[in-house]
Design a protein around this nucleic acid. Sequence first.
DNA 1: CATGATGTTCACAATTTATTGAACAAACGG
DNA 2: CCGTTTGTTCAATAAATTGTGAACATCATG
Lengths: 165, 165
Amino acid sequence: MSPETEPLSALGDLEREVIEMFVRMADVLNLPRSVGEIYGLLFVSPMPLCLDDCRIRLNISKGSTSQGLKILRSFGAIRTTYLPDDRKDYYLEETSLRKIASGFASEQIQPHVHNGKEHIARVRELLAQHDGADKAMLQEKIDLLANWQKRAGQTLPLILKLIGS
Amino acid sequence: MSPETEPLSALGDLEREVIEMFVRMADVLNLPRSVGEIYGLLFVSPMPLCLDDCRIRLNISKGSTSQGLKILRSFGAIRTTYLPDDRKDYYLEETSLRKIASGFASEQIQPHVHNGKEHIARVRELLAQHDGADKAMLQEKIDLLANWQKRAGQTLPLILKLIGS
DNA sequence: CATGATGTTCACAATTTATTGAACAAACGG
DNA sequence: CCGTTTGTTCAATAAATTGTGAACATCATG
């Protein structure tokens, strides 16, 4: 009569709706759809789930499930729990937005920012060698670019502070 | 001898390097590569460029160029200038990070956030109809989700303030 | 009008990214 | 050791995204 809640049953309307929200978030964050699905499922689930629970309920492949769980672990969006007398890994969603955002920032965004710094250094070298009427203008532009870079780098940690606990 | 600076010549090392930075930024922001290329070219260029200048120097198609300029206009990353005695549109990069970020936020991010609100309302409806032992837990989870949504919505404008002028 | 210059659109092609599933560890218990 | 359970990896495939270029609109000018 009432909708199923066991991990191996099909998804109910409410679960599907919540999962869809996370699929959209995944899209905004440029993560594979399956990552959103898995996190969403764990989020609505009242109990920790193992790889096969996720795979079966979401009807996705073993490979995608394994990859998706790995990505979610990589920025701390999920945690592992060990159930007694069970060899399988069970997963639990992290519910602290700050922790997730922080993990995401340091794993998926910082690398780009860091890389950007090296790039600017390289551009500055090239500018030193450069001769021409436009040199002054280029100097200004590159300073502006470095300034953007700096502000972006400062803003990230600030956002995390603002997001609070 | 010294590198070319005329709009119709091939790209110099410095230009290529700067453009590559913007291509990477485009990637982070989930925009097509060509959009990054076009903005980068306008950014390093000492003078406004028209569609054909961009197309030829970047060696991309007319279609991509037209689309890319449209996207950049859509969130105010570039502006149009009119040169006397010339029917063509010339484009100039916007150099205010605040303006660009603000345009990007309202054009590319807000829609998702807005959509999210409707979604939560729908989930709440479904929860009202829902019976089961897990109802209390789901209520908490959905409240948490709504809270995230709210904080994300508040954080966006705050970021823009922090980015300053 | 006819012409040429400028810019947009859109079906198709090329490219990139995600998913699948089978082969491969690893580890446990008999 | 062997078979079973669990999870990972990766080459092949499928799906989604981006780029192309030709056809089309627009408009200023003679």
